[in-house]
Amino acid sequence: MVLWLIKIVSPLSYLVSSYFYLRYFINRGESDKTWAKITDTMAILLHGLLLILLSLHTGHLPLAEPFQALTTFMFFFATLNKLLIVNKKEYSLGVFHSFILFIFQLISMLFIEVHAPLPDILKNIFFEVHVIFNLVGYASFSSAFLTGIMYVLLFHEIKGRKLGYFYDRLPSLGYLEKLNFRAILIGFIFNTIGIVLGACTGKTAWGTYWAWDPKLIAVVIAWITYAMAIIGKINFHWKGKRLAYLSMIGFTWIIFSMLIINVYFSKIHSFN
């Protein structure tokens, strides 16, 4: 009963917070900012509560089927954004991530199967940790994707010498670059650990560390993209624009390749 109620309320709570973030983005009013802060925190806490209830209900982490995994992913996404962006007193970006949260939380709540049977492979603790690390990593990459978009929008407004809408509302280029790189770095670290753990589980499950599976190849390509961004920034002093584009490319690659692979290929790295 409580679970059922939260399933309805959780997406709506993100809708409410995105409403206040939007109002703040447009009007820059102080009261909207305060409300956005409060509703955003409430929504994340509610989301966390939902995950805990799901875990207690089913006896395992909510990763058993795609939509369970999606809502867990969205929770990491929300928490990361909250920690990386909003807590640094930058509220203009809240409207973007809170709206994305609303959409995906709605989708996952509509299609979630609470009592989906847990695939055998997931009963391995290594595998569970591998999935969680990867989810955190991709959540961070998606945050980098968002700040990358912001950076490019503002960069073109300033470079194109038309100071207008985004100029008034977005934080500075330097700050966006910092956020962007931080998100890439955090995502990369989690993603690396996730991949290594994945290889270990692969060894126990299929008896090999590496399989020429399309999904694995796509993941490694994305990982190389982000590794390039980090090396470029640290060793070659790449500027924010290149990092922003790389984070956008990397994340788009992840989304598209996963969609295509899930539809057209079905190889060993799938569990249904």
Binding site: Y167, P171, S172, L173, G174
Partner: peptide
């Protein structure tokens, strides 16, 4: 202000 919009500090 424009300078601040380009570089945070």
């Amino acid at each position: 202000d424009i300078s601040r919009k380009i570089s945070e500090n």
